[in-house]
Design a protein around this nucleic acid. Structure first.
Lengths: 220, 220
DNA sequence: CAGGGAAATCATCAACTGTTGACTTATGGT
DNA sequence: ACCATAAGTCAACAGTTGATGATTTCCCTG
């Protein structure tokens, strides 16, 4: 990461608001940034980090390549913005949101829903984003960090407490759960393996629910 | 696949025979080819196709880059050789071995062992190779077929019978089990996510065993 | 102990990638 | 109407990648 990133307002972390600001028509930096992140995330997820060129992303959006450098500093910065957005939409973004509050059953249900929507929706492709190794050292570090946050969040919703050694095993169990989700999404979307690829929520609900409950709520 | 491949004796499918030919010491083309395929497969599996450079592969083996062009025609040719070898080893290694004969518990134990060995051994990495989409149509077909065979074999060892509709659900369950394995191997090797990456067999045996038994042997 | 031929290397090319600084154009306040 | 500023484009550079022809090194046969 170079230090000359000329990202104008608030680099990669902005996103959130887009407040009462009357969006400027036509030339709208906020909208362009959003479009870039969306296109990039799709490309990164389907083609992988290294195979995706910034020129292609810019072309998808219909703007010049240089804008990526201007807004995100670098390809890596764009990738980080993608990860942030993914983490946020996946529910790990908000610190208090979900987690222990809604109970383990709600969390499990939400996980299954993500997997089921995998082949169609845009959302679950983001999960693939977490798995594909990029060959880029820094990008991998970003990925690892996001995945780590996701794991701890899930473990916490199952009762994990960093200060309590008795619950330490839950961290690994949460990771196994995530591995299952990621592997299944991959099998459904990337490989297209039957019967998983065409399984409905009705087919997946029982085995996946049992699996996740056994993993995260062994007492129930 | 260019037609100018100057591969000397028997292009990608050679291996098999290596007849009465006394392998020449030191400068051994067969051994070099094998080493290249092995190193390439490892790189392709962990880093992905695009992120892997032929220079890096050659460097891993300790030979010059040009040899890849000489032996495999191109990077794509080398990848195809990797897929062929993987399909071959996975195909010949599996049929008699395990299956219904040794019982579901033995199969589960072997699966777990595979995951544990993942970061070091060569074997489980081949499975990762099956997940990477390369854009190559032929490779995708091989990938899908191998994965399909794998699923049916696992399901069969759990009591699945293609003719018995009552056991149809086992196919999906076997696929979920494979998804877990693949995801976990990926998390351990490619992502290096903690604590999974450094988990020992002692750490993984219990949660993974419970998970797989619940998935494949619901009655036990 | 030559000499042929394969094995492996070297140097290089052309294409492509990420990045950057200079330039152009629209926008909105005054 | 005007102009400072932001949004966006253009062209070019430096590094990397896959590929290739010429060259050297080594083994084996005669």
């Amino acid at each position: 990461m170079t230090d000359r990133t000329a990202a104008p307002p608030g680099s990669t972390g902005c996103d959130a608001a887009a407040p009462a600001d009357p969006v400027r028509s036509g030339r709208d930096a906020v909208r362009t940034r959003g479009a870039l992140v969306r296109a990039a995330r799709r490309r990164f997820a389907t083609d992988g980090y290294r195979a995706t060129t910034v020129r292609r992303i810019a072309s998808d959006v219909g703007v010049n390549v240089a804008l990526i450098g201007r807004y995100f500093g670098s390809k890596e910065g764009l990738f980080e913005a993608c990860m942030n957005r993914t983490a946020e939409e996946l529910g790990t973004g908000g610190p208090a949101r979900s987690s222990a509050a809604e109970g383990i059953d709600g969390t499990i249900g939400r996980l299954i829903a993500h997997v089921v929507e995998a082949p169609n929706a845009d959302d679950p492709l983001q999960l693939l984003l977490l798995l594909r190794s990029s060959g880029d050292e820094n990008a991998d570090a970003i990925r690892r960090r996001t995945l780590q946050t996701f794991t701890e969040r899930l473990a916490a919703s199952a009762g994990w407490d960093a200060a309590d050694p008795a619950t330490a095993g839950l961290l690994l169990r949460a990771q196994i759960a995530i591995a299952t989700m990621l592997g299944l999404v991959m099998l459904r979307t990337s490989v297209g393996a039957q019967p998983a690829a065409s399984a409905t929520i009705g087919d997946l609900e029982e085995p996946l629910g049992d699996l996740l409950r056994g993993l995260l709520a062994p007492d129930s």
